[in-house]
């Protein structure tokens, strides 16, 4: 899987309350959630993300609550992939489960600037900075996580691999 897009930079400890403030959890519609993605940090983010971007962040991205609305809001706002030094664990699992690629890449935050064009090769665990002609190595994702992402998330994955999970 190769993903390309413009980099949007965020700092350390971006938490789920700024990704999607809880007052918007009253909405059940992912498109409505997307309108408020990152509202706590940058109310203009949905405008910026339209058409597809790659988030580049620092340490502990997605810390805080277990709300799956956080990766959902980002995905529907146009985020194609998130690169960070490392992620908070529930956000990390949630993003994979909804089919939003996340890649751990220690030291990434200092090496990419806002607006750089990036290509991410998920299988190889490589990030190509097209603007600066540089290649950055990330932690490769394990095979079973790549499969979930290729299938578009956990639900689609289970349907495809198991023909539906019937109890």
């Amino acid at each position: 899987m190769r993903i390309s897009g413009k980099a949007v930079i965020f700092g350390d400890d971006v938490n789920t309350d700024v990704i999607i403030p809880s007052k918007h959890l009253t909405s059940l519609d992912p498109e409505e959630l997307a309108k408020h993605a990152m509202e706590g940090l940058d109310p203009k983010f949905p405008e910026k993300a339209r058409g597809g971007v790659i988030i580049v962040a620092g340490r502990n991205f997605g810390c805080g609550s277990s709300r799956e609305q956080a990766p959902l809001a980002l995905k529907h706002a146009g985020v194609k992939c998130i690169l960070a030094d490392f992620f908070a664990r529930i956000f990390y699992r949630n993003a994979i489960n909804i089919g939003l690629p996340v890649l751990e890449c220690p030291g990434i935050s200092g090496r990419i600037e806002e607006g750089d064009i990036l290509t991410v090769d998920l299988e190889e665990g490589k990030i190509i900075n097209e603007t600066r002609k540089a290649v950055i190595e990330a932690h490769k994702l394990p095979g079973f996580i790549l499969e979930i992402l290729r299938d578009g998330g956990l639900i689609a994955h289970l349907k495809k691999r198991l023909g539906g999970m019937e109890s």
Partner: peptide, 14 residues
């Protein structure tokens, strides 16, 4: 430990 909603659904079933 806390998990997301899709995983919670998978646990409810399996």
């Amino acid at each position: 430990t806390g998990i997301g909603s899709t995983e919670t659904a998978a646990v409810l079933i399996s």
